Computed example of a mutant assay.
Amino acid sequence: MPSRSPHRFRRTAALLTAVAACVALAGCSSDEPSTSSASSPAATSAQDESVPGSTEQPRTDQQNQQAPTEVSIPSIGVKSTLMKLGLNADGTVEVPPAEKGMTAGWYSGGSAPGTPGPAVLIGHNDTRFGRAVFHDLKNIREGADVLVRDGAGKTLRFTVTGKEAVSKKAFPTEKVYGPTKGSTLRLITCDGEFDAEGHPVDNLIVYGAPA
């Protein structure tokens, strides 16, 4: 099977980078809207970046079969089904609705866990309904297991290799969403102090690799 040309590879990487700029904006606050539409935290964090829906890579039957269905992190007591997240009509990345704060999501525009590239799971820290699925993600330690079940029922085991809290204004897009030769995992939630509108100013990023 022929390999992708350098030009196509660069174009794909650029699209992922643009999409990542929107994902970095996902917010978690006690008074956020209860939908994941254009009024979601990803959209209400005012930024100029926007990604047209056409930039999301089409899903093949094989990719749909690989879509993850569940994530669990035994060390911090997390176990959640995974909802599929895409792009809103305005190009911002979807986040789980506030009323489903205890459910994490998989960004389907990126890689599926177990396939080459970064697989991104997004979850709220808190919502207006209270603590959410990734509330204790800050307590995770290097070496902890993250288990992801794929669509075929196979459990993939990842090991935490590091974590960092970053300002949403300085999100390390390439580090998080840039192409990788092998399968990698990123978990993203909100962190830090609140701004004047009640949104956390930072993101917490957890990095994982196959165990």
Score class of each variant (00 low, 15 high):
residue 74 P to F: 12
residue 62 Q to Y: 13
residue 59 R to Y: 05
residue 154 K to R: 15
residue 89 A to W: 04
residue 86 G to S: 10
residue 85 L to Y: 09
residue 144 A to Q: 11
residue 158 F to L: 03
residue 25 L to K: 12
residue 166 V to C: 05
residue 86 G to N: 07
residue 63 Q to Y: 07
residue 74 P to T: 13
residue 123 G to C: 08
residue 59 R to A: 02
residue 149 R to P: 00
residue 94 E to W: 06
residue 29 S to A: 04
residue 143 G to W: 07
residue 3 S to Q: 15
residue 33 P to I: 06
residue 46 A to M: 11
residue 205 I to Y: 06
residue 34 S to H: 12
residue 63 Q to N: 01
residue 100 K to P: 00
residue 22 C to M: 09
residue 75 S to H: 10
residue 204 L to T: 03
residue 139 N to Y: 14
residue 199 H to E: 07
residue 201 V to M: 10
residue 203 N to M: 05
residue 62 Q to P: 02
residue 41 P to Q: 06
residue 81 T to W: 00
residue 107 Y to A: 13
residue 41 P to L: 02
residue 72 S to C: 04
residue 33 P to C: 07
residue 130 G to E: 01
residue 27 G to N: 13
residue 72 S to E: 11
residue 148 V to T: 01
residue 139 N to K: 15
residue 43 A to G: 15
residue 41 P to A: 11
residue 117 G to W: 07
residue 206 V to L: 08
residue 24 A to Y: 00
residue 4 R to Y: 05
residue 200 P to L: 08
residue 99 E to T: 15
residue 35 T to E: 04
residue 23 V to H: 03
residue 15 L to N: 14
residue 5 S to T: 15
residue 163 K to F: 02
residue 200 P to W: 05
residue 101 G to P: 01
residue 82 L to M: 09
residue 173 T to W: 01
residue 28 C to D: 09
residue 82 L to P: 02
residue 127 T to P: 00
residue 182 G to N: 13
residue 209 A to E: 15
residue 165 A to D: 03
residue 118 P to S: 11
residue 17 T to K: 14
residue 73 I to W: 07
residue 97 P to Q: 06
residue 187 L to A: 06
residue 74 P to W: 09
residue 204 L to Q: 08
residue 27 G to V: 00
residue 23 V to A: 11
residue 192 G to N: 08
residue 58 P to W: 02
residue 99 E to A: 10
residue 87 L to T: 12
residue 1 M to G: 13
residue 148 V to C: 04
residue 46 A to H: 13
residue 14 A to M: 05
residue 48 D to C: 09
residue 93 V to I: 10
residue 65 Q to R: 14
residue 87 L to C: 06
residue 146 V to I: 15
residue 69 T to F: 04
residue 34 S to A: 12
residue 42 A to V: 09
residue 113 P to W: 08
residue 11 R to F: 08
residue 180 T to E: 12
residue 138 K to G: 10
residue 83 M to R: 13
